[in-house]
Structures are given as C-alpha cells and as structure tokens.
C-alpha cells in the first residue's frame, strides 16, 4: 500500500459511478440539445439547438419551475425554523442520558419508507379523513377539509418529510460546540441570549448551513411528495421530467428540463452560501476573540 494503491482502492467505486452515473447523465445533457423527431421518435441530435431550453422556460413549464422554487425555499425555511430549535434543545437543553432515545426517535421516521409516510398524510388530510372529521366535530370547520391536491399540502408534506434531515445534522452541529465555551461566556457576564447569539450560534453556523443545504437539494428534486399530495395544483419540476420521458416520449425536452432543474438547485444553493457568508461576517470578529475555539 504505497503511493499507488490509494487510487486503486477507490477505483472500483469510481469506475462504477463513471459508467452508471457520469456517462448516462452526460448523455442526458447531450439529448437536451436535440429535438423530438415526429410522433414515434424520442430524440434526435442531428441538428444541435438550444430550442428545448427556450421551450422548457416558456410560461407553461415556467410556472412549475417557480412553483418548485417557492416550495423549495419556503419548505427549507420552515424545516430550519422548526428543526433548528428542536436540535438545539436536544443537544443543549435535554438531559444527556435522554439524547440516545431522542436521536432514535428522530431517526426512526427517517428510516421508515418515504412513500408510505407520505401516504399516511394523505389518509390524514383527505376530505373524508381524520383531521377533517376532527375539525368538523370541534366546529372549527364547516364541511370537508379541502387541503389535499393543493400547493399548501405539498409544502406541508415536504416539511414533514425532510425535517429529520434538518434535525440530525443540526444536532451534530450544536453537539460539537464545547459546553465549556458557553459556561465561560456566562461566567464572563453574558446573558443567555448573548451567549446564544455570540457563542453558540456562530460556532454551530457552518454545520447549520450544511443542514439547510442537505434539506434544500433533495427537496427541490422531490417527485413523490407532490405526486401523492399535490395533484395538478401542486406539481413540481421532477414530475415534468418524468412525464416527458414516459407519456410524452420527448426525451430532448425532458432532458432540457432536467438540466435546468440541476442548474437551478446549484444556483440557489450558491446564492444561499453567499448570503450566509454575508450574514456570518459580523460574527466573525466575535469569533476571533475566543481562546482555543476551533
């Protein structure tokens, strides 16, 4: 195991990923510059064109892109708003001996089938479902609950589905902050809020940002949640891609939509990172003062 074998050890995984991931994805990029040749063909690259990208961004599909971006940003924000305080409580406030159980309780839903969990919400939110009956019995609601097959239902579904993916990394981020630094901050006269904003949050920030990205990326490409809960009103880009490849048999257009989706995810994540650096900048000065902080 001298210099070369390092590369050799990684080779099986790398070759596998190149053959079954890199090459097929490059093929999709190639398809996206082609066109659909008549009713029976799926793709044709004899003339290269950017027309499919123009087609993908016209208002018919453009609204679905905006819808997806809205659900992606709002869903991630809600996950952060709910997940980060929960993770903070688990890592800092809850008794240490409870932590194992709490982590298990967050992990169990995450390891349960995604599709089945989403169907569980369909059962709850249906017009004749439990929530509808309960709200009706309490007199809060007059008539059946009409949330299923709306954008709101999709937003609700994605917040639920990706919440564990926010809580677990955020927990790790808070858990890594040395408790003695918090104690030192309190001993030096800082109140609990000041300690939170000047010590705990700045130290956990990179991990929290990673958690946000970890939620945002798969959320933008979600296909199952909008299919089960969204109906026609709450459709997302992944469904457009699937339709073009299956019923539409228009691989060129489907590929262009897929490429735009990936670019949109990367661009939004990069924008988020830039904003994060901008917000984190004022805290950086406070960070430098601390002794022995990582």
């Amino acid at each position: 195991m001298r210099a070369r074998p390092g590369f050799l050890l990684a080779l099986p995984a790398w070759l596998w990923l190149v053959v079954f991931f890199v090459v097929p994805v490059l093929q999709v990029v190639w398809f996206s510059f082609g066109r659909k040749p008549g009713i029976f063909g799926t793709h044709d690259n004899s003339v290269l064109t950017l027309d499919r990208y123009a087609e993908a961004l016209d208002p018919t599909f453009g609204t679905v892109f905006l819808n997806t971006l809205w659900i992606g940003v709002a869903g991630t924000a809600l996950c952060a708003l709910i997940g980060i305080p929960t993770a903070y409580w688990m890592a800092v406030k809850a008794k240490p001996q409870w932590r194992g159980l709490l982590i298990a309780l967050v992990m169990i839903p995450y390891w349960t089938n995604f599709l089945v969990r989403t169907i569980g919400w369909q059962v709850v939110l249906a017009p004749e479902g439990w929530l509808s009956t309960a709200l009706g019995a309490l007199g809060i609601l007059d008539g059946p609950l009409e949330v299923l097959n709306t954008r709101g239902a999709v937003l609700f579904g994605v917040v639920y589905n990706y919440l564990p993916l926010m809580i677990l990394p955020a927990f790790v981020a808070f858990d890594r902050v040395d408790p003695t630094l918090r104690e030192a901050s309190r001993d030096l006269g800082a109140g609990r809020w000041r300690t939170l904003f000047r010590v705990t949050l700045p130290l956990a920030a990179p991990g929290l940002f990673a958690a946000v990205i970890l939620v945002f990326i798969p959320l933008m490409g979600d296909y199952i949640t909008p299919s089960v809960l969204g109906g026609a009103a709450g459709s997302m880009v992944a469904q457009l891609v699937a339709v073009q490849f299956q019923a539409g048999q228009n691989w060129a257009l489907g590929s262009a939509i897929a490429v735009i989706l990936i670019l949109a995810i990367v661009a939004t994540a990069a924008l988020g990172y830039a904003l994060f650096r901008l917000v984190a900048l004022p805290f950086a000065a406070a960070r430098r003062v601390k002794l022995g902080a990582p």
Partner: peptide, 16 residues
C-alpha cells in the same frame, strides 16, 4: 452523485 435529484438518475439510467 449525492446532489443529483433521483429523477435525473432515473431518466438518465433508463436509456443507458
């Protein structure tokens, strides 16, 4: 591989 949406893996793999 880890950031590519699953749907893209799916539509890329099928023709390949």
């Amino acid at each position: 591989v880890s950031v590519t949406p699953e749907i893209v893996d799916a539509i890329a793999l099928l023709p390949w």
